[in-house]
Design a protein around this nucleic acid. Structure first.
Length: 183
DNA sequence: TGCACGATGAAC
DNA sequence: TTCATCGTGCAC
């Protein structure tokens, strides 16, 4: 497995979202390595994207999103679940990719379909907000072997308030995967 | 200082 | 369709 380099994240957000499918999210805690294969993700295109948190501007909460690429933006939603995002493009673009579902690969307990469950199963919480994904305990890696993946595009989930942005096809998932949050 | 509301998930 | 549950952003 090779850890993805900074340059992987410093690219167009839609490209990063699609390329993250099939990659491996790795989180090491207490010597235990949890691995999940990313099968579903959504792109959030910066302050002008009304569905993106960065549309609120630079606030304490969105600070990480406005920062450099390759860092984790983790936040609490509905007071009970965490959501894991990967910051993309250069500092200031405030763009990110939300990881919505992974396929269990190693040391994963419980379900992993849906952003909240994904974080729960992989032990991800607010303490990892701002964490560098080029670190040794929390990162995304490539298996080295590239199996061809067919990608399905859909509107993003739960962003109906975002006007025309809600209709854009910015949700991507691996066709045929049995670990998608919803069809 | 108060308050409305989620990039959700599970039950009913 | 409803509810659990709380940090964030913005109004006052």
């Amino acid at each position: 497995m090779h850890k993805l380099p900074r340059e992987f994240y410093d690219r167009d957000t839609i490209e990063v979202a699609k390329d993250l499918l099939g990659k491996y999210l790795v989180h090491v805690t207490d010597g235990r390595e949890r691995i999940g294969r990313i099968v579903e993700a959504e792109a959030y295109l910066g302050p002008h994207d009304l569905a993106a948190h960065s549309a609120k501007g630079l606030t304490p909460r969105t600070r990480v999103m406005f920062g450099p690429p390759g860092h984790a933006y983790v936040y609490l939603i509905y007071g009970m679940y965490h959501c894991m995002n990967v910051v993309t493009q250069e500092e200031g673009k405030a763009s990110a990719v939300l990881l919505r579902a992974v396929e269990p690969v190693r040391n994963i307990e419980g379900r992993t379909q849906g952003p909240g469950l994904l974080c729960k199963a992989m032990g991800i919480d607010k303490k990892l907000n701002g964490h560098d994904l080029l670190s040794d305990n929390f990162y995304i890696a490539d298996a080295g072997v590239h199996r061809k993946i067919s990608i399905v595009k859909r509107p993003r989930i739960g962003v109906d308030y975002a006007g025309h942005w809600a209709r854009r096809l910015l949700r991507f998932y691996v066709r045929g995967s049995g670990f998608i949050s919803r069809p």
